[in-house]
Computed example of a mutant assay.
Amino acid sequence: MIFETQEERPEIMENLHRVGITNLRTVARINWKGKVYTFIPTFEITIDVPAEKKGIHMSRLVESITETMGEAVEEEVLEPHTSLEELGKCIIKRLEGKHPHRRAEVWIKTQLVMERTTPASGRRSLETYDVEVGVVKNYDGSFEKVLRVKAIGNTACPHAMANNEGKTHIQRAVGELEVRAPFDEEIALEDMIDVVEGSFSHPTYTLLKTVDENAVVQGMYRNPKFVEDVAREILARAKERFKGRIHVRVVSHESIHKHDVIAETWS
């Protein structure tokens, strides 16, 4: 006999808004506009738990991933899921038949690899970007998505340049962009990365030959920016291209200070 202790009434009767599993890693294949991407993402899946229920059946959350992922990787090879957010929604839909809930979230963290061309030698450089996709089923049954990307660039300080006869300090900067939108709003993670990367003094590259290093440095000096400038430009570009609530955070890892500098804004 199996006792369903999760269905018992708890001693403390309080609603819980997010209960589930986190840091579950598996594999996924996504066909985005004819190009197939293979990911090894990390999942977090949560649902709400009413006050009168002691807990949830954790194995059913895992099943909602493994069964959906099995279809995506094996049965749907010819037609994989079209996006990470579509995969997240499919997991929630499968969970609906396994575990009662009113609200659910699926968060998928992974890395997206994009091909870039170095600025002078024209060599191919593969760049890796941290991305996160969240799918939220609201209490009214509607779905929304949250897309987050992170890109590394650099900045040249305009203040030092103006006071040192054109000489200045440079630093690595990390830009983060989040867009929260209705589920059906089409937003490409690649486009979000382009917005962030194009807002620095200059992008950075994994592969750089000497002529490329020179081009990057010269490009930075032609385009000096404060971290505040970068944050404002990311926001302005994002508002032009994406519909939804936008959040921007930029961290400048200062080269001449013992602290970092941040700029943050949202629409």
Rank of each mutant, 00 (worst) to 15 (best):
L177N: 00
L177S: 02
E178N: 09
E178Q: 14
V179S: 03
R180E: 09
R180S: 10
R180C: 05
R180H: 09
A181Q: 06
A181F: 08
A181I: 10
P182Q: 05
P182F: 08
P182H: 08
P182A: 02
F183V: 13
F183S: 08
D184K: 15
D184Q: 14
D184H: 13
D184I: 15
D184G: 14
E185A: 13
E185Q: 12
E185H: 10
E185M: 10
E185C: 08
E185D: 13
E186R: 08
E186L: 10
E186I: 11
E186T: 12
I187P: 04
I187C: 10
I187V: 12
E190R: 04
E190S: 14
D191E: 11
D191Q: 11
M192V: 06
M192C: 04
M192L: 11
I193W: 00
D194N: 13
D194E: 15
D194G: 04
D194A: 13
V195Q: 03
V195G: 02
V196Q: 00
V196A: 03
V196F: 00
E197K: 08
E197I: 06
G198T: 03
G198D: 06
S199N: 04
F200V: 08
F200G: 07
F200Y: 10
F200K: 01
S201T: 06
S201P: 05
S201Y: 01
S201A: 07
S201M: 03
H202P: 04
H202G: 06
H202W: 11
H202D: 10
P203E: 02
P203Q: 06
P203I: 02
P203D: 06
P203R: 00
P203A: 05
P203G: 03
T204R: 02
T204V: 14
T204C: 04
Y205F: 13
Y205D: 00
Y205M: 05
T206Q: 12
L207E: 07
L207R: 10
L207F: 11
L208M: 13
L208W: 04
K209F: 12
T210S: 13
T210R: 15
D212S: 07
D212M: 05
E213L: 07
E213I: 09
N214V: 15
A215N: 07
A215I: 10
A215S: 12
V216W: 00
V216C: 07
V216K: 03
V216T: 01
Q218T: 13
Q218L: 14
Q218Y: 12
Q218H: 13
G219T: 06
G219D: 02
M220V: 11
Y221W: 14
Y221V: 09
Y221Q: 14
R222D: 14
R222N: 12
R222Y: 10
R222V: 13
R222K: 15
N223T: 03
N223P: 01
N223G: 04
N223R: 07
P224N: 05
P224H: 01
P224E: 04
K225C: 01
K225N: 02
K225Q: 05
K225A: 05
K225V: 08
K225H: 11
F226K: 05
F226M: 06
